[in-house]
Simulated assay, not measured.
Amino acid sequence: MDLKPLLNKLENYHTEKPNRVFTMYLNTDPADPDQQGGEWRLQLKNGLNNFETYLQEDGDSDEKRNYWAVKEKVQHYINENERNLKKSVIIIATADEDIWFAETLQMPVKTEFFWEEQPQLRQLKELQKSFPKTGIILTQKDQVKYIDAELGTVKDTALYELDLDTEDWRQHQGPHRADSNLGSGGAKTSKKDELAERFEANRARWYKSIAPELDQIAKKHHWERIYLVGPSDEVNDLEQHMNKKVEGKINKNLLDHEETKVLNEVV
Rank of each mutant, 00 (worst) to 15 (best):
M1F: 15
D2A: 02
K4V: 09
L10V: 01
E11V: 00
H14K: 12
T15C: 06
E16R: 12
E16V: 09
K17R: 07
P18Q: 13
P18T: 09
P18H: 12
R20N: 14
F22S: 04
F22E: 03
F22V: 04
L26C: 12
N27D: 15
T28R: 08
T28Y: 12
D29W: 10
P30V: 09
P33H: 14
D34A: 11
Q36N: 12
R41F: 14
N49E: 14
N50K: 12
F51L: 10
T53K: 14
T53P: 06
D58K: 14
D58A: 11
G59T: 03
S61T: 14
D62M: 06
E63T: 15
E63G: 15
K64H: 13
K64A: 08
W68E: 07
A69M: 10
Q75H: 09
H76P: 00
I78K: 03
I78M: 06
N79T: 08
N79I: 01
N81W: 07
N81T: 10
R83M: 05
L85V: 03
L85E: 07
K86W: 07
K87H: 11
I90Q: 11
I92K: 01
I92H: 03
I99L: 11
I99K: 07
W100Y: 14
A102C: 05
E103I: 06
L105N: 02
M107D: 11
M107I: 15
P108A: 05
W115Q: 02
Q118S: 12
Q118N: 11
L121V: 12
R122H: 00
K125S: 07
L127F: 04
F131N: 09
G135H: 02
D142S: 03
D142I: 01
V144T: 08
Y146F: 13
D148F: 13
A149L: 02
L151F: 11
G152N: 05
G152W: 02
G152V: 01
V154K: 07
T157R: 15
D163N: 15
D163Y: 15
D163P: 12
D163T: 13
L164R: 05
D165V: 09
T166Q: 10
D168F: 13
Q171V: 04
Q171A: 00
H172C: 12
H172N: 15
P175Y: 08
N181R: 15
S184F: 14
K188A: 10
S190E: 13
K191W: 13
K192E: 14
D193A: 05
L195G: 02
A196H: 09
E200A: 02
E200F: 01
A204C: 00
S209C: 00
I210T: 06
I210N: 07
P212H: 01
Q216R: 12
K219S: 04
K219N: 06
K220S: 08
H221R: 09
W223D: 01
W223Q: 01
W223H: 04
E224M: 02
R225P: 00
L228T: 03
G230M: 03
P231L: 01
D233V: 05
D237Y: 10
E239N: 03
Q240M: 13
M242E: 06
K244G: 00
I250Y: 15
K252C: 00
K252T: 06
L254C: 13
D256I: 07
D256V: 08
H257R: 14
E259A: 10
K261F: 02
L263G: 04
L263T: 02
E265A: 10
E265S: 10
